[in-house]
């Protein structure tokens, strides 16, 4: 899935003097406050963090409360969806007007009917709402399907994604993968057929005849050479 990136950030956390005895715990606490919120400086939503303290020195700020700045490097995993990126999520609701998806368990996404390609048709089968592809009957989107969709826009405040199923490389991941496997298998078969044709040429009978042909050619050549030598 796109929209996930790892980065290293140089961070300074200013701690209250009362936290001087438990600096690490306080830093972790500060870092955890970044979770599941869009951070403009990092340009993404922090999903995990791993601080690395290279020094036990901190800069004390002068003032009534001498806060001290702890400098460290943190490895962060960020979620940063941008338009046209491909995301994956689980379908939690299907309706005639929209498909609702949850990405990575925390971000909600919705695909409005106008962003669902015309190939998909809304149906109610056995009391359950589904979108079925007109061209590939096995391509279905229902509750529980893992869906690949492209990002239209991202609400950084509530981490809400507006998605689209217009691109052809979007849809049910299961179906897309099956299709990819099939096409891969097809290309392998094609190759095999190609190889088979080549192998057919190498069949013993052909080889003999070919050898004979070669022999005869060689013979001719040889004879030519011999002729020239002779001459």
């Amino acid at each position: 899935m796109e929209a996930l990136k790892e980065c290293c950030a140089n961070i300074v956390v200013y701690l209250h003097p009362s936290k001087a005895k438990k600096v690490e715990a306080s830093v972790y606490r500060q870092l955890s406050s970044l979770l599941f919120k869009f951070n403009e400086s990092l340009d993404g939503v922090v999903l995990t963090y791993e601080p690395k303290f290279s020094s036990n020195l901190a800069k004390i700020l002068p003032g009534i409360h001498p806060y001290f700045g702890v400098r460290f490097e943190a490895k962060l995993l960020l979620f940063h969806p941008k338009p046209d990126m491909l995301l994956e999520g689980e379908v939690v609701k299907v309706g005639q007007q929209s498909i609702h998806i949850i990405v990575l368990g925390f971000s909600s996404a919705v695909i409005a009917d106008e962003d669902i390609r015309e190939d998909f048709k809304y149906k109610i089968k056995h009391g359950k709402e589904v979108f079925v592809s007109r061209s590939h009957k096995k391509h279905r989107i229902k509750v529980g399907t893992t869906l690949r969709f492209s990002v239209k826009n991202f609400d950084e405040e509530i981490l809400h994604i507006c998605g689209s199923l217009v691109p052809s490389n979007t849809g049910s991941i299961q179906w897309l993968e099956t299709k990819a496997e099939e096409s891969q298998a097809y290309s392998i078969t094609e190759k095999r057929i190609g190889n088979k044709r080549a192998a057919e040429l190498l069949e013993p009978a052909n080889i003999v005849s070919y050898r004979k042909k070669l022999k005869s050619e060689n013979h001719i050549k040889k004879s030519r050479r011999s002729k020239s030598r002779d001459s």
Binding site: S98, H100, S108, D155, E157, I158, H160, C162
Partner: peptide, 12 residues
């Protein structure tokens, strides 16, 4: 429900 789930700006 439709409003709140359709767009982030309606959630609150």
């Amino acid at each position: 429900i439709s409003l709140a789930t359709f767009s982030g700006q309606y959630v609150d």
